[in-house]
């Protein structure tokens, strides 16, 4: 019997998107269960059944796993997207966590948007002109020397996490990635991967 996999999250890209990309690239059949918003009865009833009262949750044959990066790492190991040695696994983890750090700054902008705060343009400018810059520059340098992906010739879930983040940055400002040639090439390459390409062409359009 093939495993039954369900990914539960709200109807946004957010913290489930990397898991969706891994499953799409792996060609794994799964249920992409998009739960109604945080104020809904559906979520209120589901909440107590999740491990930590949070989404996303991954269900594998009825067993539940919480926390987005944990889910991503578990799936990435399962489908060979976590690097090929223990040291590479660790390097991949460090890039994922590095991206998560700056993505948490981007979340401040999303929160300002959702609250329709007067400050939203300031928050956006601080993020794009200041906070994100050293991160993009560091990642651009790590891809130097003609590497196709962060670990060399083959993609890992670190590439997915980075490209998902770059997509969000590009959607905030279309020229934000202009100075970063390696990162733009990585995005293009990753978007064209089998599985990812098909997923992106049919992905539900959501604001976040």
């Amino acid at each position: 019997m093939p495993e039954k996999i369900v990914l539960r999250y709200f109807n946004v890209r957010g913290r489930a998107e990397v898991a969706r990309w891994i499953l799409a690239y792996a060609g794994q059949d799964y249920l992409d269960d998009r739960v109604e918003g945080p104020q809904s009865t559906q979520w209120k009833e589901l909440k107590d059944k999740t491990p930590f009262g949070q989404l996303p949750v991954l269900e594998v044959d009825g067993k539940m796993l919480a926390q987005s990066r944990t889910i991503g790492r578990y799936l990435a190991h399962k489908y060979g997207l976590a690097g090929t040695s223990k040291w590479e696994h660790a390097q991949v983890d460090s890039i994922v966590d590095y991206i998560d750090e700056i993505d948490n700054c981007r979340v401040k902008y999303i929160q300002a948007c959702m609250k329709r705060s007067d400050d939203v343009e300031n928050v956006k400018a601080t993020f794009l002109q200041k906070e994100v810059v050293p991160y993009l520059q560091k990642l651009e340098n790590l891809l130097g020397g003609g590497k196709s992906y962060f670990c060399g010739d083959e993609p890992t879930w670190a590439d997915f996490a980075v490209v998902i983040f770059l997509d969000e940055v590009a959607s905030m400002s279309s020229d934000a990635l202009a100075p970063y040639e390696n990162l733009r090439a990585l995005s293009e390459r990753t978007h064209s991967l089998k599985g990812i390409k098909e997923y992106l062409s049919k992905r539900p359009a959501t604001k976040f």
Partner: peptide, 10 residues
């Protein structure tokens, strides 16, 4: 190797 959790896990 950077990032505390990546180091911890390794």
């Amino acid at each position: 190797l950077g990032q505390s959790h990546a180091i911890g896990r390794y």
